[in-house]
């Protein structure tokens, strides 16, 4: 480390490999405020890195979205397009993002603007890379709010606040009171009809706790914050999920007079192949979409995490392990808990209706009631919502990191300051979401940021890495330090097949969403101002952060960067 104890001005950029080509020391680059050179953080251990990466990938979707989609789209047959998408889209993009991150990290870049400029050799690359900081921070705005619901439900599972005993509703519809509980908590129920919560105070309290926890972890940095969290949360997540999966499989047939209500009937519902579904384009679209979301591709967080690797650290095996761990959590554990338990409690027909109503109904309306049927149900419900919370928070800190890293890298803002800024953004942008949830505010974020934006950014990544960076450099960089030989066929997949696949996804999603999400067909006219506010916020953040990147770009002209051939 002593070799880097020297100073240089802002224009004496390059650092990293040019300054110390064979060094494993990471350098933090000069900033707009003047010279700033210090060793940047690194992961404490490979286990910690894999846990953090797996935590970043494993999210709420593994346990709520996957089983619902599989059951809805052909059961076992859904896994055919799912695994094809994993092979042609998920794993290649995982390797690309890991490699981009490690490459950028050698030059002190821990966020995508700098990484893209390095790869493209153009200032415009930096602007494209700005999407890698604006999209994740927008994503985390709504993700953290949903994450706070899981924290609240873990608490309410212990207190028994939503149980049938606690309900005073006279209703024949079994899920009526848990739905009422959720809608009251969210403030969606009109005033005067609320039973459980008369105000949003509890929701806001848990949301503030979730935002605060995220900020605290980010402020502690990579090793002491994110890695430590992952080392605690991920083993607990797997433990809770395995306990729940075993418990669900042991439920048998709770009521012998209703033999169809069993966990095995639920597993059959998830896994029985319906090959006719493969003829439908939307099934292929849903499978590819799930692979895309479940691996946290296109969020800029994988690059950020990988940028703390050393120059010759392996990306191939570690990236593959991340994807494999995520698939274990999703296909084996995620497919065994929610739907089978729902079928054992409510039967197949009711579960099909629940599944068609969305992941939130499955997770927050059906599951609390299903756990109630089990002995020690409150305990299993607590485990369920705690595992969802762990899955959520290990993902949300990853989504905050690209912006925090950029603020540190470009404007010299310290870890605590960057974390505070992320917190303020989450609060300011999240408040309308909390207040206007019932007006479709979340759906606009989900489409423009969580669906369209991420796929667009991933497409641009592939073009920059596979085509502009240079085909030889791309392949050499991918294989550097690899502990797993990447088959040559992935060269062609990265350059041709994956971009084409993403293009089809983008067109397909746009086509599917033209009416509802883009033209706002079916949305009540009274909701239009809220929906436009949501769109305006998204556009404003993208433009504002693009401007911040541009200003940084102006102070660090591309002419001072090393030429592409040098790196």
């Amino acid at each position: 480390m002593g070799q880097i104890a020297m100073s240089f001005g802002p224009q004496q950029y390059p650092v990293g490999r040019i300054l110390s080509p064979d060094s494993n020391v990471h350098l933090s680059r000069s900033t707009a405020n003047g010279p700033r050179l210090k060793p940047s953080e690194q992961w404490g251990s490979r286990f910690g890195l894999v846990m953090a990466m797996a935590g970043n990938a494993i999210g709420l979707g593994n346990f709520l979205r996957f089983p619902r989609l599989a059951a809805e789209h052909g059961g076992g047959a859904f896994l055919i397009p799912y695994f094809i998408a994993l092979l042609l889209l998920g794993i290649p993009l995982m390797w690309v993002e890991w490699t981009m991150g490690r490459h950028g990290g050698q030059f002190g870049h821990h966020s995508t603007p700098g990484m893209f400029m390095r790869m493209t050799g153009s200032r415009w690359g930096k602007l494209i890379g700005s999407l890698g900081i604006s999209l994740p921070i927008l994503f985390v705005v709504f993700y953290t709010y949903i994450e706070s619901w899981t924290l609240a439900y873990a608490f309410y599972s212990i207190t028994g606040a939503y149980t049938t005993e606690a309900a005073n509703l006279a209703t024949s519809e079994p899920m009526m009171h848990t739905r009422q509980f959720l809608h009251d908590y969210q403030g969606v129920t009109p005033e005067g009809e609320r039973v459980y919560f008369q105000s949003l105070r509890p929701a806001i309290t848990f949301w503030l706790i979730a935002v605060g926890l995220n900020c605290w972890i980010i402020s502690r940095g990579v090793s002491a914050g994110i890695e430590k969290l992952a080392k605690i949360a991920m083993p607990l997540l797997f433990l809770f999920a395995i306990v729940l999966a075993i418990r669900v499989l042991c439920t048998g047939t709770p009521d012998p007079s209703l033999p169809d209500r069993s966990a095995w009937a639920g597993l059959n519902f998830v896994w029985e192949p319906n090959f006719t579904a493969l003829a439908h384009f939307d099934v292929w679209l849903a499978a590819a979409g799930q692979i895309f979301f479940t691996l946290s591709i296109g969020t800029g967080s994988i690059q950020c995490y990988a940028s703390y690797l050393k120059r010759d650290d392996d990306c191939a095996m570690t990236g593959f392990a991340t994807a494999a761990t995520n698939e274990f959590a999703e296909v084996v554990l995620g497919g065994t808990i929610a739907i089978p338990l729902a079928v054992s409690s409510f039967g197949l027909a009711a579960t099909q209706i629940i599944a068609s109503q969305g992941s939130f109904d499955l997770g927050f309306v059906a599951m609390p009631l299903a756990f109630e049927d089990l002995p020690l149900g409150w305990l299993f419900a607590t485990l369920w919502f705690s595992l969802l919370f762990f899955a959520g928070i290990t993902s949300s800190v990853g989504l905050c990191m690209p912006l925090a890293a950029f603020l540190h890298e470009a404007y010299g803002i310290g870890q605590k300051g960057s974390a505070a800024i992320c917190g303020v953004i989450m609060l300011v942008l999240g408040l309308p979401l909390v207040l206007f949830l019932g007006h479709g505010y979340l759906d606009q974020y989900d489409f423009w940021v969580g669906t369209f934006g991420l796929a667009l950014f991933a497409f641009l990544e592939l073009i920059c890495f596979g085509w502009i960076f240079g085909r030889k450099q791309m392949w050499t960089e991918l294989q550097r330090g690899a502990e797993l030989k990447i088959p040559r066929v992935f060269y062609y997949i990265i350059r041709y097949i994956a971009p084409a696949y993403l293009l089809v996804l983008l067109v397909g999603w746009t086509w599917e969403s033209v009416g509802k999400e883009i033209l706002l067909e079916g949305a009540p006219v009274a909701d239009h101002p809220y929906l436009w506010l949501s769109r305006g916020t998204i556009a404003g953040v993208v433009v504002l952060l693009g401007l911040l990147v541009f200003l940084w770009s102006s102070k660090n002209p591309i002419e001072n960067e090393p030429a592409r051939g040098e790196v």
Binding site: R46, F47, V50, G76, L79, W264, A265, L267, N268, W271, E272, P273, M317, T318, F320, A321, A324, T325, E327, F328, V331, V332, E483
Partner: peptide, 30 residues
Amino acid sequence: MTIGTLVFMLTVWVVVTATALWSILRILSK
């Protein structure tokens, strides 16, 4: 659940679990 569905499900479980364990153990052994 038919035998075919059961075998299919168990095969996927075994392959996915084994792949995850193999890759994690390879990393930890280095």
